[in-house]
Amino acid sequence: MPEGPWARPVLAAVLVCGALAGAAEGGWRAAGHRPSADAEDLDLWAIARARASNHDVNTIVIIGKSRAQLDVHGPTLRRRYPQSTVVQLALRGRGAWAAFVDLTADEAFAGRVLWFLTEPDLTPQAHREQRPAVDRVHHLGPDGRTNAWLRAQVASAVTFRHADLRPRRVLENLARGRAVPPHFVVMGPDRFAAADFDRVDVELLRGQIAAVHAEMRARMAGRSVDPARWRADVAQVRPHVAQLRARGGDVVFVAPPVSGASAAFSEAFYPRAAFWDTLTGATGVLTVHHQDLGGPPFVCPDTSHLDAEDAPRFTAALLDRLVAMGFLAAR
C-alpha cells in the first residue's frame, strides 16, 4: 500500500462526501425535484409481482401501461380493501399481455386482475412487451429482492438518487443548454404513482404525445384496423382467462380516461362501437369504459393521464362500478 496516512484522509472524505450529498439534495429540491422510486426498476416490479403469489382470491393486481399506474390511487384502493393484498404491476409504455399470461400460469395466484388497456395491447405485437420484467421474477435471488427493496426505499427518501438525475441525464441536458426539468411523476416503493401536472410544461407533454400519434398514423399509412381480425387476435386471451377462473381468480378490462387529441386518435382508429364494445363477446371478459363511470368526465391534462387530484375520484368510481358488476366484493 502507498506510504503516508490514509485513515484520516478517508475518514475526512466520508464527511466531505456527506456534505456534498447534502448540498446536492438541497440544490435539487430547490430546483423543484422530489424523491421517487424508479418506475423502470424491473427488480422492484419483480418483488411486487412475487407478492401476488399468495393463493388469496382477495388479492387485487393492476396491470397495464402508465395510465394504469397514474390513474389508480393506491390509498383509495387500500382503504376500500384493507384485507386485500394490492399489487401495482403497471409498466410505462409496455402492454401487459406477458404479465397477465404469467399470472394466469402461476398456480399460487388466484386474485382479481384489473387490466388497463388500449385496443392494440391485446394483439400479438404487444405480447412480449413486458417479458423482460416477467423473466426477472423467475431469476431474481434473495439478494436481488432485498437490494431492489432497499434501493426503492432510499430513492423514495432522497432526491439525489432519482433516476432522472443520474449523471448521464444531467450531461444530456447540459449539452442541450438547460437544467434537468423536474419530473412530474412521483412513485413510491409500492409502485403506486401520482402525476402532478402543475410541475410540468403541459403543452410540451401534449406535443410529445401528438408526435407519437403522428408516428403511429404514418405507420398505419391510411390503413384502418380490421375489427374482425382484431377480435380474432384478442380471443387468444380466452384460455388464459379460463385458467385463472378455474382457480377462483378473474380479470376485468378497463378503458382508462383519455381526452382531447388522445381520445380523438383512439376513436379514429378504434371506434368504440366496433372495437371496445365487442371485447366481452370476443374474450368473455367483463369490461369497464371510463365514459360509463358516471359523474363529470375525467380530463387528462396531457390528454392521456389523470392528475393526482383526479385519480382518487376515478379510482372510487371504478371500484363502485366493479362492485356493481359483482367483480369485487362490496366494501
Binding site: 462526501c17 450529498a21 446536492a24 424508479d38 438518487r161 438525475l165 443520474r166
Partner: peptide, 10 residues
C-alpha cells in the same frame, strides 16, 4: 464516493 452516490440506476 459522491459520484457513485449520485449515480443511481438498476
Amino acid at each position: 464516493y459522491f459520484l457513485v452516490l449520485v449515480s443511481p440506476g438498476q
